[in-house]
Each structure stands twice: as C-alpha cells, then as structure tokens.
Simulated assay, not measured.
Amino acid sequence: MTHTWALVNLKPGVGKSTTAVFAAQAAYEEGLKPLLVDADDGRSCLAAYNRADGFKWPVIGLAEPDLHRKLPDLDGGVDLVIIDVPQVEDHARIARGALRYADTWIVPVAPSHYEVDRMFEPPRGAADDSGRYRLLEFFEEVQDMRRSPADVVVSLNRTNRAKRTKTGPDAEVREALEDKGFEVLNTVIPWHDDRFRQAILPRTPGTNMRRLVRELLDRKGATQ
C-alpha cells in the first residue's frame, strides 16, 4: 500500500515545504521509501535537495494541474508520496489535482491567531462575518470529486512547546481550529530553527517529526 499525503493551506509561508522535506526524511529513517513531489513553482523542496547534493530518496518537480492523473504512473515502488502543494489562493488548479490524488491532507499551521485568521479568509465577495471560508469550501469541492473522502488533519508547527499543552497559545489555537471542525494531530512540531530551517541535510532521530510520521501512518492503518 502506498500512503499519499499532501501538505496544503490557503496561504504561503506556513511551513509546508519544511514539513514535506523533514517528513520524507523521517519516513526514510523509519524504513519507508518516500517520494517527494514539489508541486510549487517556488521549488523550495528541489532547492533543498540541490543544496544538500541530493537526499537518499527522490524529489521531483511537477507543478501541473493534472497531478491526480500523472502521479499514479510515478508512485510504483515507493511506500509514501508527499506532495508540497502550492498555496490554494494562487494555484487552485494545481492544488485541486494534488488533493484528488492524496488520501491524507495535512494542513500546517503555526500557533498564532494571526495564522488562523489568514487560513480562514472568506471567499472573494463574501462578508467577513458570512461564516463562509474559502479553504473549507475548496476542500468540500475537492472531496466531492473523490471516490472516497480524504482524511484531513492539522499539524501545529513552530509551536512554543515540544508537547501538546492544555493552556497557552498552542492550546488556544488548537481549540480554535477544532471549533472550525478540524482534527488537530496530537504530535506538534516545536520551533527549532537550527534543526529545521537552517539544516542542509535533514536528520530526524529523536525528533517530533518522527513521531508525527508514525501518528499519520497509524491513522491510515486504523482506517484500512
């Protein structure tokens, strides 16, 4: 069975590319064969791959709208496909194809109410108090195109603490997202600038990224 994950959000700068690279490395260290698909014109994942003179697993660039048709021809022989999806607000066609393919949609969010507000922007022309949200409507649209519903989860990254908390900004953002109907993963990714953003060669032993990958794999196994 090939696991298929898409890192997606309405806005850029939420940690999709960083999460994609380190999740792929964590999966490799867990004994899986990952394939990372850089579907963003920014090419952050490919840049990381080139800067490191390659990883022990492949990265391909495929910023095209029909990913749901092309990726099944490329995912043979791998255990996990991770797609770095461009921001939905500017690249809805590419994001739509990626989400039609991937069975798990991972929404990275930093623990600040500003980031939550950016994520829950209303559709163009809708009032701020309309109760309508552009990202949620996009998700509903793509779910209707699928044969079976995707599993949608939020990953809290750049958190203030290394574990799930009951109080403080991490807990407040978790509660705000759950109030919107999202399921938030138990594993959080704390802010370690030296380990993640400044790292040339990704390494994940002993980190929360390994636990995050195991939590995602366990979720999929529980639904089979």
Rank of each mutant, 00 (worst) to 15 (best):
E137C: 00
F139Y: 05
M145Q: 15
V109I: 15
Y114V: 06
A171R: 02
I200N: 13
P108N: 08
M119D: 00
N208E: 10
N157M: 07
R203A: 07
L156H: 01
V184Q: 08
W191Y: 09
F139V: 15
A126W: 00
A199F: 04
E121V: 13
F139K: 02
G181C: 08
I200F: 07
Y114A: 07
L201G: 09
F182I: 12
N186E: 11
Q198G: 11
S130F: 02
K163G: 12
R147G: 09
R174K: 13
V142T: 10
E115V: 03
K180W: 00
E115R: 07
A126T: 02
K180H: 14
E175N: 10
Q198F: 09
V116M: 08
S148K: 12
E121Q: 11
L185I: 09
D129T: 11
F138V: 11
E172K: 14
D144S: 11
V142R: 01
L135M: 14
V154G: 01
N208A: 14
V152Y: 02
V116D: 00
S155H: 07
E178H: 07
L135D: 03
R197C: 04
P169D: 13
R195E: 14
T187S: 04
A162K: 14
M209I: 14
S155M: 14
R158I: 04
D193W: 09
R164P: 02
R146W: 04
F138L: 08
R174V: 11
R158P: 01
L136S: 11
L135Q: 04
N157K: 09
N186G: 09
G206E: 09
D103F: 00
K166W: 02
S130E: 06
M119T: 10
G125T: 04
E178G: 08
A126D: 03
P202Q: 01
I200G: 06
Y114L: 11
H113R: 15
D170K: 08
D128E: 15
E121N: 09
V153G: 01
E137N: 04
G206D: 04
F196H: 10
K166M: 15
R147I: 00
N186R: 13
R146S: 00
M145C: 05
A199S: 15
L136K: 10
R164Q: 15
T187V: 13
E141P: 09
T187F: 00
T104L: 13
P205W: 10
V154H: 01
G206R: 04
R195K: 14
G206M: 06
R195N: 06
T159P: 03
P111N: 06
F182Y: 12
Q198K: 11
F139P: 02
Y133K: 06
P190Q: 06
D117Q: 14
R134L: 15
